[in-house]
Design a protein around this nucleic acid. Structure first.
Lengths: 147, 147
DNA sequence: CCTAAACCCTGTAATCGTTACAGGGTCAAG
DNA sequence: CTTGACCCTGTAACGATTACAGGGTTTAGG
């Protein structure tokens, strides 16, 4: 006796909004579920776990494409899973670079913060610093840290 | 004898693509520049510095909205510049939160990486971990760290 | 002089993941 | 029988940037 859940209940159980669930389906991360007579989606326990998988991956910062690759591996249990390790390692590397970049930014920012207590904009050290361009890197396409 | 630059030269001097420059203009960060007879944009030195300002701000991770506020302050030199300090402090705080979140993620990821050397996907520790959902936070809208 | 490359213009759509609509249907409790 | 809580689809928004399409201009070389 399988239990079935409508999308709203899945949402509250997984912490994943109905919109996202439909979105994952559209992207092919989730197979189209069964539908009730009125067209309502019905999910079983396996689908719940798959959504949990996606959610956990997202909470680790993985992008949906990587998660899709991991799910594909999981769907073919006989495959060599080195690819999974590659994805995770690559992401970890990526995270570490991101962290280093953000720390550099924070350091640079700490040097200017609280430099202009109560002054006028004309003398503001923060604004001055921004005009003095020795940006960390002037190369095209460099330094746009998503933060 | 003012020198004028076409958008492409501004781009190579500032490290900011022509598309971005036009984008900043559309958003109101840059005043519409003079135009030549064929409609080409022509920029003077002040515009170059303003773009450098924006670029430096972006390289620090500030969003365009904050940069616009800073530019507005800079444009009214008599204003009190506490607001600039607020923007910078707020952003620094934001960065530090981001860093902490990413470090938590990296830590979690380091625990699973290299756990499945050469195995089959069915036993892969990484995939298993993703199915075992104790996501850091199951609250709706929590844990979506942009990374 | 002519042509090809390199530049400029505008406007629109893509990226990523999520959210927020609009406009409509279904169902249960009051 | 109406209100509210669901569900459906499709589209647009967010932020910043890039990539087109479709057209015009300048510049350098042959």
């Amino acid at each position: 006796m399988k239990r079935y859940y409508r999308i709203g209940e899945v949402a509250s159980r997984t912490g994943c909004s109905p919109e996202s669930i439909r979105h994952y389906e559209k992207l092919g991360l989730l197979a189209p579920p069964q539908r009730g007579e009125q067209g309502y989606r019905f999910y079983d326990q396996a689908a719940l776990e798959r959504i949990g998988f996606i959610r956990h991956g997202r909470s680790l910062g993985l992008d949906l494409h990587s998660i899709q690759e991991l799910l594909a591996l999981s769907d073919t249990p006989d495959t060599d899973c080195t690819a999974a390790d590659d994805i995770a390692s690559r992401h970890l590397e990526h995270l570490e670079e991101r962290i280093a970049a953000l720390q550099a930014l924070a350091g640079e920012l700490r040097q200017v913060v609280h430099q202009c207590r109560g002054g006028k904009a004309a003398n503001c050290q923060i604004i001055q610093t921004l005009y003095d361009h020795q940006p960390t890197c002037t190369e095209r396409g460099c330094g746009e840290v998503t933060a």
